[in-house]
Design a protein around this nucleic acid. Structure first.
Lengths: 199, 199
DNA sequence: ACCATGATGTCAGCGACTGACATCGCTCCG
DNA sequence: CGGAGCGATGTCAGTCGCTGACATCATGGT
């Protein structure tokens, strides 16, 4: 039984700072310890020194607390696509974005691991993860369109990129002695070229 | 205001046949008329001449009633992959499966259209759709492995195929004068080859 | 000191979902 | 033919996610 990093509920007044951060950390702790389903929102809020009602003011639902970072990831990928060399083919722009995302996750391996463990133990959370990835795909499609890429190519490049990102992440998490995630991405891209070459 | 095709609740005894079918039809009707969120499970059950409790005996949750057919689709795609020519490259086996799936949907355009309209109006339903597609991808990956395809190629081929299937379906639904869905699939596969050729 | 404002708390309520137990109709066995 | 067994359905009570309405508390400016 791990000792809680936070223990605010005894000492905190109503206006302690960083309510969102406390809620996030409390939720992650409880989800890891007991699992997502076995944790109630009231418990999370109590551990963070707040009430259930306040939890729902910060997060639209019980799952969303685990996905707050995805906006940042999306912002990074979109920016990287937009900043790619003008001459770069769509799939190349997307590849560079994926690699940038891989680096971001690499810096937070510990958190990413915990988060992934929680998510992969629960179906509802997997659903949420998938829709976040789908939204990421739409955002990248938009970015490619802004680069003048035609609709179909944009959509296919973006969605294919998301697929590679997802598979790379899973393999990276699972590897006992982890390579750089970028290496995995490159391996997958090469294999993708081979596979689709058969069409 | 459309007239309900079903109106069992006045006349039906406890053991009328096809409870699952009645629930499915009642749910689709109400979801179309009022939207998913504005429909309660109790209302669905009542329209089908049953109780809420019975609804949850047939469907694990309120969303699942719209996804009962996905098992059949999955069965078809997996079978098609397994039956593909032994010499066919993985992506080719997957392509033939997608085209078989396209034909299946084609036969049910009306229902598919209704269903898609309901799903695209609601985020929770989109989440469920995405996880069903992900499971479909896993099933196809398995089928490819059984054909002796190495892990990475199997996964990439399957997931890429799912992407193509998803995009093809969306375009097919949206087109005012619909082509054969197979034609759309072929167009996307060609474009995919071009796009990934740049890697 | 006072007041506007934003963050938080309190309370009541709906609806999804579940477990436990009762009831109904059918089938089959004696 | 009657009752036992059984599967499908109903009933009831309860938990939890989530929301709207309103009260309350600190803080900054006047």
């Amino acid at each position: 039984m791990s000792v809680s990093v936070i223990n605010y509920h005894r000492v905190m007044g109503r206006w302690e700072p960083n309510a969102r951060g406390r809620l996030t950390q409390a939720a992650l702790e409880l989800y890891v310890e007991r699992g997502f389903e076995q944790t109630t929102v009231a418990e999370i809020a109590k551990l963070a020194g707040l009430t259930q009602r306040t939890f729902f003011r910060y997060f639209s639902d019980k799952r969303e607390v685990l996905f707050w970072g995805s906006a940042q990831l999306q912002e990074l990928l979109v920016r990287t696509v937009l900043n790619a060399e003008e001459s770069a083919a769509p799939i190349i722009a997307v590849a560079s974005a994926i690699e940038a995302g891989a680096e971001l996750l690499q810096e937070r391996r510990q958190g990413a691991l915990l988060r992934h463990r929680v998510i992969s133990a629960n179906r509802e959370l997997q659903e949420r993860e998938l829709i976040k990835l789908a939204l990421l795909g739409e955002a990248i499609t938009d970015a490619l369109r802004q680069r003048g890429v035609p609709e179909i190519a944009a959509r296919l490049s973006a969605e294919t990129g998301i697929t590679v990102f997802k598979i790379a992440f899973e393999r990276w998490i699972v590897e006992s002695k982890p390579r750089e995630m970028k290496a995995i991405v490159d391996e997958l891209l090469n294999e993708l070229k081979v596979v689709t070459g058969e069409i």
